[in-house]
Every structure is written in C-alpha cells, then in structure tokens.
C-alpha cells in the first residue's frame, strides 16, 4: 500500500535505499555534508542576475559526488526535471519583461530576459541536484540529526522526522479513502464538493486520533520530552579538511572568472 504512493509520485524511497550505500561520501559526518551543501547553495545563489559562465564550473561538484558516491545520475536528474516546472514558472516572465538585447550569439541578439531565465534554470539545476545528492548520500533522518547537532531547535527537527515517518502513511490513507469513494459513486454522484469536504474532515480526525495513539506509544516507552538517538558517526580530521577545501574552491569559483581564464589559456596554447 505504502509503496503505491512512493512509486507513483516521487520515488522518494529510492533515495533512502541509495543512502544506505557505503562509499567515501556516505561515510562522511552528516554535518560535513549539510554544511558543504549549504555553502554550495549560498554561493550559487549569490551570483548576479545575468550570470551564466560563472555558474558553469559549479557543475563540477555534483559530477564529483555522483562519481564518488556511486549515485545513478539519471535517477536524480529525473526528479529534478519533475519539479523544474516550478523554477520555469518563476523565471518565465523574465524574457517577457526584459527585452533589452544584451549579447549577440552568432548574429542573433539575445535579450537580457532570456539570459536571466537561463541563469535561473541553471541555478535551480545546481541547487536541486545538490539537495537530492545530500539526501541520497546522508538519508533524511541523517540530515535531521545533523541539523539538530548543529543547533537547530529539537522541536523543529523532531517535526521533520515525524513528517518523514508519517507522510507516506497519511497520503496512503487519503488515497484509500478516495478509492473507496470512487468505487461506490456512479455517474458523478458522490463526487461533489460536499463529499470531498467530509472526506477531508474524516482524514483530519483520523490523523488527530493517530497522533494521539502515537503519543501514547511514545509515553509507553518512557518518553519524557526529548528524542534520543544512538549515533556512531564522528566528526574527524578528514571532515574538517574536506570542508576547508570545499570552502576554498567555492570561494575561488565565485571570485575568479574560471571559464574566461581557461579560455584564454587554451587560446594561448593554440
């Protein structure tokens, strides 16, 4: 039952499976990966509106993680494509409002709007891929623990963990109810708004009751208000070194015009 939602919608579960592999990327302390990803995202987003060339070198990061972490590229890209309409929606008005020609590519004038649209999409690709890679190499619970240990309030991280645990259960329950309704309604009867509202109401009540039962299950096992975990991963010297290296490279990519430099270098060689 649970799997149906998983399969049909986002295949989120696959990320779980990937996160149980054992590679040098997986073995890093989750905190290292969370911080590195955050740095990466902040750097990518901080570029000016019309930047494209400066963003290209950042593709190197996901490529490395795909390789070292043994993550199937197509699987992650499919998910990125699936949500890309959102990003397209954000950027799509740029070409409409910003029609000033900016550059000419082989004789055709390209407006600033199109450039910034492309830039939005590129940033989206980079950040989304890096987040999915973080989940695929760390697991969602791993990330929550990392956030907790980095000082995020426990209330917040516990909520995230419960969301992760019960999202599937909840959506499945909703889908089962809709299916039950559809099987017993004919020619549009029973499909109207009134029925839908009562369906949502029932789902809400069931959820409340479930929450109460879960809370009691927690109390039954001695819960006193704080979630405890046994964790074995340690923050080692490699983690520190890696973080330093990532920060340095990100800084270099941000400040120096890498593509231009490589271009000039190749020109000089030929």
């Amino acid at each position: 039952m649970t799997m149906a939602f998983d399969r049909e919608y986002f295949h989120l579960g696959v990320l779980d499976l990937l996160s149980r592999r054992d590679t040098c990327v997986h073995r890093l302390d989750p905190r290292t990966k969370v911080i590195a990803t955050l740095l990466f995202i902040v750097t990518v987003v901080s570029f000016p509106k019309y930047e494209i060339m400066g963003l290209l070198p950042f593709l190197l990061f996901p490529v490395l993680v795909f390789g070292l972490g043994d993550i199937p590229v197509w699987l992650i890209l499919k998910k990125v494509l699936l949500v890309s309409p959102f990003a397209a929606f954000i950027g799509i008005f740029n070409p409409v409002f910003d029609t000033e020609p900016m550059v000419t590519v082989s004789g055709i004038a390209v407006s600033g709007g199109w450039i910034s649209f492309l830039s939005v999409m590129l940033r989206f690709l980079l950040t989304m891929t890096s987040v999915l890679l973080l989940i695929a190499t760390t697991s969602f619970p791993g990330i929550c623990h990392a956030l907790r240990r980095l000082g995020m309030p426990e209330l917040f991280t516990s909520q995230l963990l419960f969301l992760y645990r019960y999202l599937f259960v909840l959506v499945e329950e909703g889908m089962r109810m809709v299916r039950a309704r559809d099987m017993r309604s004919f020619r549009g009867k029973g499909q109207d708004v009134r029925v839908f509202v009562s369906l949502v109401g029932t789902l809400f009540l069931r959820t409340m009751e479930r929450a109460e039962r879960i809370y009691h299950a927690m109390l039954s096992r001695g819960f006193t208000g704080s979630m405890r975990f046994v964790r074995t991963v340690r923050f080692r010297a490699t983690d520190l070194a890696l973080l330093a290296a990532v920060a340095a490279v990100l800084y270099a990519f941000r400040v120096y015009d890498i593509v231009g430099a490589v271009g000039r270098q190749t020109e000089r060689m030929f």
């Binding site: 969602f140 619970p141 929550c144 963990l161 419960f162 992760y164 645990r165 019960y166 479930r210 039962r213 879960i214 299950a217 927690m218 096992r221 001695g222 819960f223 006193t224 979630m227 405890r228 975990f229 046994v230």
Partner: peptide
C-alpha cells in the same frame, strides 16, 4: 502506531534510551 522513529534501529533503541 507503535513504530514512530525514522529507522527500525532508532525505534527499538527509543525505549532503552529513555
């Protein structure tokens, strides 16, 4: 209702930790 932690291991550890 009984299994509320993110992984089986964490769930079984929940009681003893408490």
């Amino acid at each position: 209702d009984q299994l509320f932690m993110p992984t089986v291991h964490d769930d079984v550890a929940f009681g003893p930790l408490n």
